[in-house]
Design a protein around this nucleic acid. Sequence first.
DNA 1: AATGAATGAGCATTCATTCAT
DNA 2: AATGAATGAATGCTCATTCAT
Lengths: 213, 213, 213, 213
Amino acid sequence: MGAMPTRALPAQTRRAPASARGARTRQALVEAARTVFERDGFIDARITDISAEAGVAAGSFYTYFTGKEDVLAAVLAEVEDEMLHPRLREFADRDDPVTVIETANRAYLEAYRRNAKLMGLMEEVAQVDERFRRLRRRRMRAFAERNAQALARLQEQGIADPALDPRLAAQALSVMVSRMAYLRYVDGFGNDSTDALAATLTRLWTGALGIRR
Amino acid sequence: MGAMPTRALPAQTRRAPASARGARTRQALVEAARTVFERDGFIDARITDISAEAGVAAGSFYTYFTGKEDVLAAVLAEVEDEMLHPRLREFADRDDPVTVIETANRAYLEAYRRNAKLMGLMEEVAQVDERFRRLRRRRMRAFAERNAQALARLQEQGIADPALDPRLAAQALSVMVSRMAYLRYVDGFGNDSTDALAATLTRLWTGALGIRR
Amino acid sequence: MGAMPTRALPAQTRRAPASARGARTRQALVEAARTVFERDGFIDARITDISAEAGVAAGSFYTYFTGKEDVLAAVLAEVEDEMLHPRLREFADRDDPVTVIETANRAYLEAYRRNAKLMGLMEEVAQVDERFRRLRRRRMRAFAERNAQALARLQEQGIADPALDPRLAAQALSVMVSRMAYLRYVDGFGNDSTDALAATLTRLWTGALGIRR
Amino acid sequence: MGAMPTRALPAQTRRAPASARGARTRQALVEAARTVFERDGFIDARITDISAEAGVAAGSFYTYFTGKEDVLAAVLAEVEDEMLHPRLREFADRDDPVTVIETANRAYLEAYRRNAKLMGLMEEVAQVDERFRRLRRRRMRAFAERNAQALARLQEQGIADPALDPRLAAQALSVMVSRMAYLRYVDGFGNDSTDALAATLTRLWTGALGIRR
DNA sequence: AATGAATGAGCATTCATTCAT
DNA sequence: AATGAATGAATGCTCATTCAT
């Protein structure tokens, strides 16, 4: 399966640093930006705070980035592999579908929890910037299509409810998991354990798909 | 069913207008605020735009409201009944659970679609203001508890999967519907018809709950 | 003859103040702007200096003007009547054309000298801002046309050289006077007296037009 | 007639390049500067644009020049012969003064037209930098003195109006031509042909000087 | 109650110039 | 000689909020 092929944001950006020193400065800025974003959120983060946190002059920021959105894109690019949607792995006929689903859901919840700050940041910025909204849509579409294929396969095998629209069903169930993760780990809603969440969500998935246990 | 029990936001607010003229001005401001919020979003809306839209002087705004959040609370209070979560009505033993669920989901999707601007506003503002985030949590909890009770009853009757945590399951399924509605009607994701959405979501609900058809 | 009909600059501007207090503040800003512009020139003038000179808060500037160009337009509007190009008054057949020309030239030189700072400002800003360049062209055209008519009349009367293109000739002679005034009073070129300048320029005009003395 | 006696600007400048490579880089910068100045004007031209246009690193600029004024001086030095004022050539008693004047005016207008960008640059920069203002004054003085001598000679010969102050008259008439050229070719005022301009200006010159045709 | 003028904090961004490699 | 990264000063403009009429 490997890493998700999400391309970089089509963000206008500066050219890559030509020297090692430049690469170091750029990196320092990306790390500082992550710190500041996680601490203050996207809207309240000031460019000067990022520069200060990175220990460079205010103007140096613009040597590498065109603005806040641009660094954010760089920050997100760095953690792209962890920014998952719940995704079923390919499974062979002999695999137990319930286990596959459970594994995917649990992995997703745990990744979300680990990167909660960043995931919240994504939601915040998607609310505010069309470019990131587009990115979110693109990612979701990619995941939904993948899961739709897995679901279609289960239907062909007579394992899943054939009456379901595989695309819509896959999307809805993905969204259920990701939104629950958001509410639990970002919004602070409820205090259920990741285990409890994973168990319930998996049971809902399998039931929803009509998979017999 | 009756009115939703969500109390008004504990927003600091000015006293109610004493005169009829004052009442009219206040009302004009609330309506203007809704117009401006729906047009520009919460963050980009400026108090002066609201005053201008209402046809009053800038300063008059503060006679009635303490700030942007305060008017927004007033706007939301006016349309409170339209701000729904998917909710199962009480149902008697003779009712068909599938029909009850389908009706609730369809009604919710349609209400969401009708009030898409406002629902998007809620999401935007929840992202930005803790007080509205709290409001959102409170509402969700109320709905989830209601639906949890309905679900528990279905379990008692042997209709729904007894292995499910009724509270978590109710929350997850509600969240699935409301997030799908947000993506479809606010974010512009996909182009599925409300019928298709309602059908798929209902099928997922019933399957997830283990209700036999 | 009366005031020149030069319309206001098509500059985007704020609405006029509604109260007497507002009118006073606006006026203070216009006067402060003139002071600052004459002292520092257009490019080096800072909005905050103008606000400070007027004794108002920085932000108040924007209650009345949209920017530096906008105040400058207001400053220039106030002194519009003094901002002349050399212009022949209407004259009857019995008037001595030489005297008419001499009077116009002298008046122009004196007005230019009096408003030298402002005239220099005009040249500076025309160099920098297309809107003012347009204004300068428009004014010049208006003056040239007027003088061209006077010249054509002299030609009809057999007083002026009939071989001259009245429009081009009028423009060239006007330009000669105004540029000499600029060099003398703004640029500091030479140290000839206004009398000497007026005498020479008039002699050149009359000779150029072929008027017999 | 020979080269114009205007010395180079007393601009502070770096030493001449020692190596052939250095000479090439310097030359590339001068040419790039001319390109950028003609394209963007003096004020809007950025040093980094000049370096980029020359294909060298930003810092290399300072190996050869101290700043923008300094390169500009180098650019102007390269085209010094083209930066003319209207100037009468020496003429013998047998020459027709009208022809001499006409030739000078036409040559000037054509040179101005050819170098309009550069002439406009000179005006722009004179508005902004005292050093170039001084240069402009010095040139004008040199030309006016030359023409004053020619005029005085015509007066001695009984050809030109003896009542004119030769210096002021020469200056005024030169200024008339050069300003008309500026307005026509830089500012875009009017659309008269160079022929028409030359004809009118010459007629005005000869009339102004009282030369019989 | 309404008016509308005044306040003033707050921050992004550019670009000439330097200087270590 | 050339490179190119780092510096950092400098200022325009918005808009929520107050308060004198």
